[in-house]
Each structure stands twice: as C-alpha cells, then as structure tokens.
C-alpha cells in the first residue's frame, strides 16, 4: 500500500491510502460530534412535535434551499479541482479551488443575513421574546443556533483549509503525482456538505 519514490537518488516515503484512511477516521469523530446533536434533536422533535412545526415556520425555506444548492455546487467544484490536478491542469485546479472558497463565503454571507433577520425579530438565545415562547420552541431555536452555528464553524475551517491547498498547488507542493492533501481537504469539505444535507430538511422543511 505504501508508495516509495526514487527520484534522482532521493528516497521519499509516502502512503496515500494511509493518509486518506487517517482523514476518514477523523471524519468519524465528526460524525459522532454531529450525531450526538442529531440524537438530541430527534428526541426533542418527538417530544415537542407541534412546537417544532410552529417554530420552523420562522425559518426561510427558500434561503435554506438556496444555501443547499450553494454547498452542493461547492462540493462539485472541489471534486473537479482534484480531477484537474490529476490531469495536470494546474491553473484550472486553482481556479476551481478559489471558486469553492467563494461559494463557501457566499454560504456564510447568506447565513449571516439569515441570523441577523432572526435577531431583528428578537429571536436569539436568551432573548425575552424567545423565552416567552413554549419550551418546545425554545429548544428548537437552541438546537438551530447550536447546530447551524457549529456547521458554520466547519465551513470557516474548510475555507481556510482549501485556501492552504490553493497556496500549495500554486507552489507545486500539490502536483499531478502528489495530491493526497487536496483529496483530504475535499473529504472534509464533502462531510460538511453531508451534514448540511441533513440539517436542511430537519430545520427548514418541517412546516
């Protein structure tokens, strides 16, 4: 499984499969992190079904669907960036990575407007208006802010990660023959996408 390169007398050890396996193991810890929250969500949703439906009416479905499309597209550009580098199309790969970063930023900007709109309506953790609602609605918004917030942090981390990859591609550290770093950044990015794939229907589509 491990790969060894002999280039002009130098001896480089590399294990791309092991590297990706390590990334997957990390992704499993992420799965458990978010999985715990989905557990919490499912029990409270079961317990306060009507309140959850009522509270979800406050969320903007179109905005949520739009953001889903943005993230899915960013996943596409990320995977195409890997194909591009495999085909030795460095400039195209860099362009696709930069587009991915901008789509991530776009997602966050939408999220920002969404959250500030909620804040203006007086719905934020600990606000008087929120505390005057039923406990099921308070729980819904608590979970909404924690889960989309934690997801948002992952989007920010992913942006920085991809930015580092772009720099490495520019400096020829990531090349046609050595691109496992880019693949691992991609794996992380797709996980962030998968989490949103579940967050979207559970928060935006239950009205």
């Amino acid at each position: 499984m491990s790969s060894t390169e002999h280039i002009a007398g130098t001896h480089v050890h590399r294990d791309d499969v092991g590297s990706r396996m390590g990334m997957w193991l990390f992704l499993f810890t992420e799965l458990i992190l978010f999985g715990g929250m989905f557990l919490l969500y499912s029990v409270y949703r079961f317990q306060y079904a009507d309140e959850f439906h009522l509270a979800a009416k406050e969320l903007n479905t179109i905005m949520g669907a739009f953001n889903t499309a943005v993230l899915l597209t960013s996943s596409l550009t990320m995977v195409l960036a890997i194909i591009a580098i495999q085909r030795d199309q460095k400039a195209l790969s860099i362009l696709l990575q930069v587009i991915t970063i901008f789509l991530a930023l776009f997602f966050l900007v939408n999220k920002y407007f969404e959250w500030t709109a909620k804040f203006h309506h007086g719905i934020y953790p600990g606000s008087e208006q929120l505390l005057s609602k039923s406990s099921g609605e308070i729980l819904f918004f608590g979970l909404y802010y924690v889960m989309t917030g934690l997801h948002g942090i992952h989007v920010i981390v992913g942006m920085f990660l991809i930015a580092v990859m772009t720099r490495m591609t520019r400096k020829d550290i990531i090349t046609k023959d050595s691109y496992v770093r880019l693949e691992n950044a991609g794996l992380y990015w797709h996980l962030v996408d998968i989490i949103w794939i579940f967050l979207f229907p559970l928060f935006y589509l239950i009205t």
């Binding site: 499984m1 596409l76 995977v79 050595s178 691109y179």
Partner: peptide
C-alpha cells in the same frame, strides 16, 4: 526513476461528476 503505486486514478470524467 519509476514511481510505484501512484495516487489511485479515478476513472471519472468531469461529465460524470456534473
């Protein structure tokens, strides 16, 4: 000078991903 076991090659094309 030969590189063994290169990073695995995916057979997908751009079109398949799109």
């Amino acid at each position: 000078m030969q590189i063994h076991d290169k990073p695995h090659q995916h057979s997908h094309s751009y079109g398949a991903y799109i």
